[in-house]
C-alpha cells in the first residue's frame, strides 16, 4: 500500500501537530508558527519526491525537523569558538588537573536517583530554568540524539561538528546541567 498526499487537507489534519512539535523543541510560538508555514511551502515544492513509503504526516514532520535543525544551526553559529576555549576553564570548577572530581563540586545524592518520589511540577520548573542557561547547541544535540535517535554521524554533519567535539559538548553540558539541578533542588 502506498500513501498519498492531499495538500487540500494539510492544514486541517497536520498543522496543529506540526505546531506542537515545533514549539516543544523551540519554545518560541512565533518561530514555531513560521516553521509550520515554511514546512508546508517547502513540501509543496517537493511533492514529486514523495514516494508514498511514509505517511503524509511522517513526511511533513521530516521536513519540519530539517527546518528546526536550521534554526539550531543559526542559533549556535558563533557560539562554537567561544565555548571551545571556555570548556577547559569552566571544567576546572568540576575537575582537578588529573581529571578527578573536585571535592567542592562533585555529585552528591539529591533525590533524582530514586524513581517515583519526585514532585514533577516542581522539578520541571527547575529543569527548565537550568536548561535556559545552556548553549542552544547542546539543546540541539540532545534533542537530536536522545529524542530523535539520530546517529552521531548525522548530528555532526548537520551541526558541523567533529565527533570529539560532539562528546565534549554533550559532556560539558550534562555536567553543568546536573550541577545546576543539584544546586537548585534543595
Amino acid at each position: 500500500m502506498t500513501n498519498e498526499l492531499n495538500a487540500q487537507q494539510w492544514v486541517n489534519q497536520h498543522a496543529d501537530y506540526l505546531y506542537s512539535f515545533a514549539i516543544s523543541r523551540l519554545n518560541d510560538e512565533e518561530q514555531a508558527k513560521d516553521l509550520v508555514q515554511d514546512t508546508f511551502l517547502a513540501a509543496l515544492q517537493k511533492v514529486d519526491s514523495f514516494e508514498g513509503k511514509a505517511s503524509e504526516r511522517t513526511w511533513l514532520t521530516a521536513i519540519l525537523k530539517n527546518k528546526i535543525i536550521d534554526v539550531y544551526r543559526k542559533k549556535s553559529s558563533g557560539l562554537k569558538i567561544v565555548s571551545e576555549s571556555h570548556a577547559m576553564a569552566e571544567q576546572e570548577v568540576f575537575f582537578e588537573e588529573d581529571g578527578h572530581w573536585s571535592d567542592k563540586n562533585k555529585p552528591t545524592v539529591f533525590g533524582i536517583e530514586s524513581d517515583g518520589k519526585l514532585s514533577k511540577q516542581e522539578f520541571n520548573s527547575i529543569l527548565k530554568k537550568c536548561l535556559e542557561k545552556l548553549p542552544p547547541l547542546w539543546y540541539a544535540v540532545f534533542t537530536m540524539k536522545v529524542l530523535e535517535e539520530e546517529t552521531s554521524e548525522n548530528v555532526c554533519k548537520e551541526l558541523m561538528l567533529s565527533s570529539s567535539n560532539l562528546w565534549v559538548i554533550v559532556h560539558r553540558a550534562k555536567v553543568n546541567l546536573r550541577a545546576c539541578l543539584q544546586k537548585n533542588w534543595l
Binding site: 506542537s20 536517583e113 529543569l127
Partner: peptide
C-alpha cells in the same frame, strides 16, 4: 544514575510541552 534520570526527565519535559502546546 543521575545522568540517566536527567535524560528521562528531559524527554518527559519535551513530550509534555508537545501535548500541552497551544493550538494554532
Amino acid at each position: 544514575k543521575q545522568s540517566v534520570a536527567i535524560n528521562k526527565m528531559m524527554i518527559n519535559l519535551i513530550k509534555a510541552a508537545e501535548t500541552n502546546a497551544p493550538k494554532l
